[in-house]
Design a protein around this nucleic acid. Structure first.
Lengths: 159, 159
DNA sequence: ACATAAAACGTTATGATATAACAATACATA
DNA sequence: TATGTATTGTTATATCATAACGTTTTATGT
């Protein structure tokens, strides 16, 4: 599988990321009986143009190059679908969206976000999830959803 | 100290939360040579009307009751100051703001947010911070800032 | 006390993000 | 092919946030 956690080397074969992401999406949709329509596919494609999360209006800009600029609703609706289906994630602190790199697992996303190059990487949730669980438990809190967004400098930009 | 981590019992003496928060803010500003002006104080007071985070325009609504409605800039500027001074925090995923319950420590805030009653509580960052540090380190990532917002049901609402 | 510079404020305008509502179309399936 | 449901297209509008600029307040040196 081409998609995986952590930051990609600048030299990685990005086409494989894209094709594998789209194939995964097709497959997941097929299995779950979801409708992976043209618009939804296009939006996911745009999200996968890079490993940088995009704002909804940036997505619109990029769709435009490929025809007439759709209304914002079009993108937000497609995003709703992708989020719901676990094919993309929202990064709240940046008001951006990114393709999910591990859509086959049923996970909550936790992100490392580089201030320098803008790229973002999903990280393994397990150890974090445990720490969160412990913290919550000690406050008597029942967790439904986690937002974990770590901002800093990625390995590529440190070098 | 009246302010502390975790969810408050519905019966707690909230006036003490407010007065202690405002006193802490005065003191911290004095020590650091910051200007805790009238507007900034009012906004912090409004934030402390409850333990529920408020949107910027909700804050405006509440300031209005106490005179003429200020322009949004007024509130956003005061919030900038309060965030900068560590007297308040932003909760990105809800686009809201909340008074900091432990402004004397130099900490990053991590929140439990109740979907049922809307209240939010800061939680001790140390164990979480360690888990985050570990996760980041293993990806070669240098952390500058953390956004941790756990959504679920608080102990009061479970009962 | 007065001049000066920096910080804060008031105000207007505008940018950026997101959703409501409803008519038209495509799709699944009986 | 009829029917209900999901999706799309479109217009309008709500919500969140900042730019820019002139005025006022405040801290500080003289």
């Amino acid at each position: 599988m081409a998609n995986h956690m952590g930051f990609q080397a600048p030299t990685h074969d990005h086409k494989r990321c894209v094709s594998s992401a789209l194939e995964n999406a097709e497959e997941k949709s097929r299995v779950l009986g979801l409708r992976f329509t043209k618009t939804r596919r296009k939006v996911l494609e745009v999200l996968w143009q890079s490993h940088n999360p995009l704002g909804a209006y940036e997505i619109l800009d990029r769709l435009q190059k490929d025809g007439r600029r759709p209304a914002p609703m079009v993108v937000y609706r497609a995003l709703d679908f992708l989020l719901e289906a676990g094919l993309a994630h929202k990064i709240s602190s940046c008001k951006t969206f990114i393709g999910c790199s591990t859509p086959d697992e049923n996970h909550e996303a936790q992100f490392l976000i580089c201030e320098s190059c803008g790229s973002a990487a999903e990280v393994a949730g397990q150890p974090l999830a445990e720490a969160l669980e412990k913290t919550a438990a000690s406050a008597g809190f029942k967790i439904n959803q986690r937002v974990v967004e770590i901002i800093g400098v990625c390995p590529n930009c440190q070098a």
